[in-house]
Structures are given as C-alpha cells and as structure tokens.
Write a protein that binds this DNA or RNA. Structure first.
Length: 161
DNA sequence: GCCAACGTTGGC
DNA sequence: GCCAACGTTGGC
C-alpha cells in the first residue's frame, strides 16, 4: 500500500470538515505532478491530511482513498474556478479521487515539529520551495509521522473498504 | 527551445 | 501582507 499527503487550507476545508462530510471528492488539483500522484492512488491507500496556509500548518489527521482516480468534473464547469477550456472531454486532463476520514491525529504535528525530525529529512513537505499539494510519503516516513502523532499501528490496521 | 513575464503557493 | 520558490505561458 502506498501512502500520501494531501494539503488543504483549513479555512476552506479542514479535517473536521472531512469528518463531517464522510466522503469527499478531492477535486481542483491543477498541477500535473500532483495529478500524476492522484492517478497512482489505490483504494484504501492512507493519506495524511495536512493543513496549509494557516497559523500553525501541520498534519491534522489520516484519510483513506475510497475511489481511485476519475475525471474531475469541475474542469468542464465554465463557472468553476477550476474550469479548463483546453481539457478534451474524451480524454480529460484532470483527475480526482474520493477520500474519507480515518482518524484525527491524537497529537497535531506542526510543520515546525516535523522539520526537526531527522528521519523526515527526505519528505518533500519539509524541503525548501515545496508547493505540491499531493505528495508521496514513504512507508518509513508514514510510520514515523503516525507514531509521533500518537497513533498505534493497530489504529491504522483497519479493514479495507 | 529559450527565457522573461506572470500567476500561484504557502510559510513567515 | 510580504516575498521566495516554482510552474506556466507565450514571444521570439
């Protein structure tokens, strides 16, 4: 199973919002690299839910993929800020996945704290100039972050959906 | 294909 | 609100 990190501005859509929503289409990604990662996601993959552009940015929870990549409908909605007139309907340019909340992190992990963890030096999130909103997390990085956040491996060893 | 201009992201 | 970093656009 692969692991990922998804960024969201909590003022727009927080982890608590995801918990209320239950399942949410992760739409609006308009960066090719991020899109390619979305397309690599499989059902049941676990994703850290990261709060960006906020007072204390950091990892707030864990979500999981409920539906693999399919066309992002907003690219065909002229009224949407995510509309893309150049996307061919027979070969849509942009994809989205559906995600559902799994669990909040018992201990919120700020970006500042993550930066201080030697094992996470390779994480794209903590590297300079990182702007990707969807990024891969290695198995080892996933374990380190989950444990730092107060999650037992049991808590994450959930039944597939 | 180069690269300057521009827009966006996101930490601070 | 500032600005560094980075991606995209478009003229040439």
């Amino acid at each position: 199973m692969a692991h990922w990190l998804l960024k969201s501005e909590p003022d727009v859509f927080s982890f608590a919002d995801l918990q209320r929503a239950g399942v949410e289409p992760w739409n609006g990604v308009r960066n090719y690299q991020a899109r390619n990662f979305l397309r690599q996601m499989a059902v049941n993959d676990l994703c850290f839910f990261y709060h960006s552009s906020t007072k204390v940015p950091g990892v707030a929870g864990v979500a999981r993929v409920r539906r693999a990549a399919y066309p992002d409908n907003l690219q065909f909605e002229p009224s949407s800020p995510y509309f893309d007139a150049g996307s061919p309907p027979d070969n849509p340019r942009w994809s989205m996945v559906d995600v559902a909340p799994l669990t909040e992190l018992p201990r919120f992990l700020s970006l500042d704290e993550l930066r201080g963890v030697p094992e996470l030096g390779g994480l794209r999130l903590v590297q300079k100039g990182n702007r990707l909103s969807v990024l891969p997390v290695s198995d080892e990085e996933f374990r380190v972050i989950a444990e730092l956040g107060g999650l037992t491996l049991d808590a994450l060893n959930v039944h597939p959906v």
